[in-house]
Design a protein around this nucleic acid. Structure first.
Lengths: 115, 115
DNA sequence: TATATTGCTACTTTATTAGTAGCACAAGGG
DNA sequence: CCCTTGTGCTACTAATAAAGTAGCAATATA
C-alpha cells in the first residue's frame, strides 16, 4: 500500500485534498494505535511491539516508515518518538480519549433502556 | 472482524478501555471516510457508494452495520445519517480537516528545504 | 570471547478489501 | 397489470493487507 501523500491521489479520493490523505493514513491498522502509544513517551522498536500487543514486526515497521515519511514520527537515539508535528496531531485526537468514555456509557445506557 | 464494543476486548488491546475500541473502529478502512461523508448530510446507500469512490457495496454495508451497532449512524427514511452521538464524534475530528492543510504545507516545505 | 539485546527482514498463513454480478422489493408510468 | 427504474443489499471471486513466526546482522554487555 503506497504512502498517502497529502496533495496527491490516495485510496478513496482523487481530489488530492490533504484531509483525504490523512484519513487514509490514520485509517490503516495500528496507525492511530502507534501514535497513541508514542504519545506516552519515546519507545524502542521492541518497546512498541510490546505496547501494541500482537502487532507483527513487519507491520510495525511498515507503519513506522509511513509515519516517518510523513513527518509524524522520527527515530532518535532514545528510540522512536513523535515529531513536533506528530505531537500536534496527537493534541487534536486527544479528546477522543475522554469522548470514548462518554460514548461507552451511551451505548451501555441504551442496552439498559431496551430492557 | 467483530465489532469493537467499548468495554470489551478489541483488536490490539485486552484492557477493555473504550479508547481502544474507538481506535479499532476508526482504524478500519473507510470508517472515518464514511463518517466524514455523512457529516455533509444524509445519504442513501447508493449516494454513499458514489461519494466514497471505489468502496465496494459489501464493505460499505459492513461498515454501516458496525457504525449503526455502535450508535454513530442510523438509517431513516432520508437514508443514512449521523446520530447525535455520531455528530459529536465528528465535531471532535473536524479539526483534522484544517490541520491536514497545515500538515501538507509542512511536508511540502521540508521538501523545499532539502534542496 | 560468549551472551544478550535490538532493529529489522523474509517468509507463510490467514483475514480483510476490492470488484463485479445480480436479486428482492418498492414506486411510478403506460 | 406489466414494464421500467431505482434502491438496499447479498453472494461470490480475486487481489491485497495483516498476522504469525523464524531468524539474521549489528551493537552492547558481561
Amino acid at each position: 500500500m503506497s504512502i498517502p501523500i497529502p496533495g496527491e491521489q490516495v485510496r478513496g479520493s482523487k481530489t488530492g485534498k490533504p484531509i483525504m490523505a490523512l484519513l487514509d493514513l490514520l485509517g490503516r491498522t495500528w496507525a492511530l494505535g502507534v501514535i497513541w502509544q508514542l504519545s506516552k513517551g519515546s519507545a524502542t522498536f521492541r518497546d512498541l511491539q510490546q505496547r501494541c500487543e500482537k502487532i507483527s514486526p513487519s507491520l510495525l515497521n511498515t507503519r513506522l516508515k509511513e509515519l516517518k515519511a510523513l513527518s509524524l514520527v522520527e527515530s532518535t537515539s532514545l528510540g522512536y518518538q513523535l515529531t513536533p508535528t506528530g505531537v500536534e496531531l496527537f493534541a487534536i485526537i486527544t479528546p477522543l480519549g475522554q469522548w470514548s468514555e462518554y460514548w461507552a456509557q451511551q451505548i451501555n445506557k441504551e442496552k439498559v433502556d431496551d430492557i
